Amino acid sequence: MPTAPTDRESLPVELVDTAGNTVGSCAVSEAHRAPGAPHRAFSVLVFDNSGRLLLQQRALGKTRFPARWSNTCCGHPAPGQAVAEAAGIRLGEEMGLRVRLTEVGVYRYRAEDPRTGYVEHEWDHVLTGMLDGAAPHPDPAEVAAYRWMTPDDLRRQMQEQPHEFSPWFAGVLEVATARPLTP
């Protein structure tokens, strides 16, 4: 018998202090209510062998920054869950991909969504992976569209049309490309 879809907004997230130490937990929806509670998150950036990055356009039904272009996938580990494990599961759920992921750094940010009033205040673990030719199979409830871009072309487009992209994307891109990618 199929299970009912998970209400992602009711799932718990891990609250953190300014040094990234766990200080508690609350529901996703509560962490994102203004003024925003600092919490642990992850951003995944998947590259192909030619160095292009897989972007997703966030679904129109997303509660935060809907319809904006962003990194391959993102989410929140459950309290106490290993970040790479949570990111791998979410990459499968959102994009239908299984990729070996490596954490490459952390990007801390706070961003208010002017359309919805929600706030992202995240200690964002950045993970990268290399896709070996498999095709994405995105969940339409999560992803409106996807495309591949080189980091240089992406940076140019972000400069020209910043409001087309999630506010964290430029920062996580810089963390992800600060050192050479390894297969």
Rank of each mutant, 00 (worst) to 15 (best):
L54S: 00
L55A: 06
Q56H: 05
Q56S: 13
Q57H: 01
Q57M: 03
Q57R: 14
Q57P: 00
Q57Y: 01
Q57D: 03
Q57T: 00
R58Q: 14
R58D: 03
R58H: 11
R58M: 12
A59I: 00
L60R: 12
G61Y: 06
G61W: 01
K62N: 12
K62W: 02
K62S: 13
T63Q: 04
T63F: 12
R64Q: 02
R64V: 04
R64E: 07
F65E: 01
P66F: 10
P66D: 06
R68E: 11
R68F: 08
W69I: 02
W69P: 00
W69K: 07
S70P: 06
S70G: 15
N71A: 10
T72Q: 07
C74L: 13
C74S: 15
G75K: 06
H76R: 06
P77W: 09
P77A: 08
P77Y: 14
P77H: 05
A78I: 08
P79V: 08
P79C: 09
G80L: 13
G80V: 11
Q81A: 15
Q81K: 10
A82G: 03
A82Q: 13
V83D: 14
A84L: 13
E85W: 11
E85G: 10
E85R: 13
E85F: 12
A86K: 12
A86I: 04
A86F: 05
A86S: 15
A87E: 06
A87N: 08
A87K: 04
G88A: 01
G88P: 02
G88E: 00
I89S: 06
I89T: 13
R90F: 11
R90T: 11
R90C: 10
L91Y: 05
L91V: 07
L91I: 04
G92M: 14
E93A: 13
E94M: 09
M95V: 01
M95F: 04
M95Q: 10
G96W: 07
G96D: 14
L97A: 01
L97N: 09
L97H: 05
R98L: 03
R98G: 08
V99I: 14
V99H: 01
